[in-house]
Design a protein around this nucleic acid. Structure first.
Lengths: 112, 112
DNA sequence: CGCGACACGCAACCGATGGTTGCGCATAAC
DNA sequence: GTTATGCGCAACCATCGGTTGCGTGTCGCG
């Protein structure tokens, strides 16, 4: 069964830079465009765009604090994303195992 | 520690159309550009390009058969991709103790 | 208070990519 | 042998990740 997956969420998490941003924010508690870009090989503007994407799908939420905007991960939404990764992986896993069993069955048949 | 992930593999699997193609090929055993595009909302050429990508990262391999090219999933490579999905999810799980509980709740709730 | 430094947003631009249409060629089917 | 099917190549378009450049708001400190 083709696991119904929210492509928006998946593709938000699909970008390697965005994954590293999530990692950093999880590690530090929060992050700003500038602070994240300091620790990533991309410019502040690139980070800002990614934050926009993450915000749009609800993976982070922002709180303006003085002259900076602090972003922190929405844990529940990230959990939802993780669940989707797991669910797709599990679906493929199941199919692969079934195939393997069938292949083994065929192999056994041939030996008779 | 940011789990070192093969971005090539991930981004190959990251595209929703390619995921659906993999699903179809797993279900049917193999697929051609035309047969897949029949069951997808994109043209044969789009499918052909995706097959090129999947082939480049080793997720499928092709065998010419008459006037058509049959592609089938490389199970081992797909298993590798699945492992990476799991590993990223696991890393996030580990960072936020809370996440795992929520994810499990969602998993129980989900009906597919 | 005033001015420099810092963090941000907006806009233009560029290359890669997912998608399309159009065409030509080869192999199968009748 | 002609028609139909499946594929590859090429041009083109929109979107996206990334950059540079510039303008604006806020903080901090003489």
């Amino acid at each position: 069964m083709s696991v119904t997956v929210d492509d928006e969420l998946w593709s938000a998490v699909g970008d390697p830079t965005r994954r590293r941003m999530l990692d950093l924010m999880l590690a530090d508690g929060f992050g700003t465009a500038t602070s994240l870009s300091d620790r990533l090989p991309v410019t502040r503007q690139a980070v800002a765009k990614h934050l926009g994407v993450l915000h749009r799908v609800g993976l982070v939420h922002a709180t303006p604090s003085g002259r900076e905007r602090r972003y922190e991960v929405d844990e529940e939404q990230l959990a939802r994303a993780v669940a989707q990764l797991a669910s797709v992986g599990a679906s493929w896993d199941a199919r692969l195992h079934r195939i393997k069993r069938i292949a083994e069955a065929i192999q056994r048949d041939r030996e008779n």
